[in-house]
């Protein structure tokens, strides 16, 4: 019993969380592709936004967005 059980109820409750996370990630990926980035490599930001929960996209939005193209 070393894993956390996923029950059906739990998945339903987790959906909004997933929606926020996915929404932010997709938003950031679009921003990165369309506007370019600052302070770090484009691929680095992409990885950060996709693989780090919440804090990744937020960090990108605060310090990584290209200021001139917003």
């Amino acid at each position: 019993m070393n894993t956390i059980e996923l029950t059906g109820e739990m998945i339903i409750m987790l959906l909004p969380l997933l929606a926020i996370q996915m929404g932010l990630t997709i938003y950031c990926v679009i921003k990165i592709m369309k506007e370019g980035v600052e302070n770090l490599n484009k691929w680095a930001w992409l990885a950060i936004c996709i693989f780090i929960n919440l804090i990744g996209p937020i960090t990108f939005l605060i310090v990584g967005r290209k200021r001139d193209a917003s």
Binding site: L17, I20, Q21, G23, L24, Y27, L54, P57, I58, L61, I62, R65, S70
Partner: peptide, 14 residues
């Protein structure tokens, strides 16, 4: 437009 609102709202809700 600088998504400051979005960042704060999203993290609070999260």
């Amino acid at each position: 437009r600088t998504s400051r609102f979005l960042v704060i709202i999203a993290s609070f809700l999260f």
